[in-house]
Lab assay of single mutants.
Amino acid sequence: NQESVVAAVLIPINTALTVGMMTTRVVSPTGAPAEDIPRLISMQVNQVVPMGTTLMPDMVKGYAP
């Protein structure tokens, strides 16, 4: 099972992602793949992402898996 990126903390809208904001988990439906964490760092979210929420590609500005 592939791990997806999950918010480790509450991420406010327009916040640039840091490694400490993200964790990985096997979830369904799958979100952004765990191996993309290095690409996701410094990208901004376009909505509030509550802690424990799977990071879906459409939540991150300019990100395409």
Rank of each mutant, 00 (worst) to 15 (best):
N1P: 14
N1W: 11
N1F: 12
Q2I: 14
Q2F: 15
E3Q: 13
S4Y: 07
S4V: 07
S4C: 08
V5G: 01
V6W: 06
V6A: 01
A7W: 07
A8H: 06
L10I: 06
L10S: 11
L10D: 15
I11R: 00
I13L: 12
N14I: 08
T15W: 08
A16S: 13
A16F: 14
T18A: 10
T18I: 08
V19A: 15
V19M: 14
V19Y: 14
V19D: 09
G20F: 12
M21K: 03
M22G: 08
M22F: 00
T23G: 08
R25F: 08
R25L: 09
V26L: 14
V26D: 07
V27M: 06
S28R: 09
T30Y: 14
T30C: 13
T30V: 15
G31K: 01
G31H: 05
G31P: 01
G31W: 02
G31Y: 02
A32Y: 15
P33T: 04
A34H: 04
A34T: 05
E35R: 15
I37V: 07
I37A: 00
I37E: 02
P38Q: 10
P38W: 12
R39H: 11
L40Q: 03
I41S: 01
S42Q: 09
S42G: 15
S42D: 13
S42E: 05
M43C: 15
M43P: 01
Q44K: 14
V45R: 00
V45C: 05
V45P: 00
N46V: 10
Q47R: 12
Q47D: 03
V48E: 15
V48I: 14
V48M: 15
V49T: 04
P50Y: 10
P50Q: 11
M51I: 09
M51P: 12
M51W: 05
T53W: 11
T54Q: 02
T54Y: 02
T54V: 07
L55W: 03
M56W: 03
M56Y: 06
P57C: 09
V60S: 05
G62Y: 02
G62T: 01
G62V: 00
G62E: 07
G62H: 07
Y63H: 03
Y63R: 01
A64V: 15
A64T: 15
P65G: 10
P65S: 11
